[in-house]
Design a protein around this nucleic acid. Structure first.
Lengths: 133, 133
DNA sequence: GCCTAATCTTGACTGATTCCAGAATAGCGA
DNA sequence: TCGCTATTCTGGAATCAGTCAAGATTAGGC
């Protein structure tokens, strides 16, 4: 995958890419933790660098719901959306009915040239929903 | 408005509420600046407190597109959406065709109880669009 | 195997936001 | 109108995610 994106194959990069694949929607800190289970010596800077490089190469997607830190996921290219729990922050994927970006047309684009419509559904996850009764 | 929300009417609060009305989509720093034109002595903390209180009271809405700091707007209750310029960060409003939250149904809610669908359109504003030609 | 540019390590730094303790004050009741 | 009390504000320190920068390391082409 890395070679396909014209990126050098280094241990930290392989570990980060793999961590993002095994931990969907994880924040940077969790990814650093996961990577260090394989490579205890990686610097946080290397992880930040790699995440930026992978994001720029479209191998991972960066998401950041309001009030949350940056999170990353490896599911790219299918323009799916997310549901975020207002209470615990849990994130789940939602398939996009349309499949191609932008899946939605703006009623009035104010002269902008739009290339993507990002949808975030807000609500309560099953567990928090139960607890709030 | 403040009294209607059972909030004490203080000078900082009036100034913040007014600043949010006159500066749509402004970030906290701009709001602090605008407020200090009226009340030079307000602390940044008072502005943060007030913005949180107003947000909780639903008198203002907090928005935070990926990679941006928190921004606030006074247009509430009509569930409109936003277009964000990828290049300069400019934000414009887009009316929601439906008008009531959630304006969109998730194809599969994963057991979540959803109360809002937030839509962010990404693209280039007219000026940046022209410059990139 | 060597060379060079890309990448990594280390450690300091920034900027937004939050935490805290003491001073000020809005709005209640007398 | 006056005083009381809880809420709010001030000022300053602290936190936390993320960025910057310089020198050491290393992947990958020759």
């Amino acid at each position: 995958m890395l070679r396909g994106a014209a990126l050098r194959v280094t241990r930290p990069r392989v570990a980060v890419l793999s961590a993002v694949h095994t931990h969907p929607h994880a924040d940077t800190d969790s990814i650093i933790g996961a990577v260090r289970r394989d490579l205890p010596e990686v610097s946080h800077q290397a992880v930040y660098n790699t995440l930026h490089a992978l994001t720029a190469a479209r191998l991972v997607r960066r998401i950041q719901p309001s009030g949350s830190v940056a999170r990353y996921e490896a599911r790219v290219g299918d323009n799916h959306h997310h549901i975020v729990c207002r209470s615990c922050g849990l994130i789940a994927d939602v398939d996009c009915a349309v499949g191609e970006a932008p899946c939605l047309e703006a009623s009035d684009d104010s002269g902008f040239s739009i290339d993507e419509a990002e949808v975030v559904f807000w609500g309560l996850c099953p567990a928090c929903s139960r607890n709030s009764l």
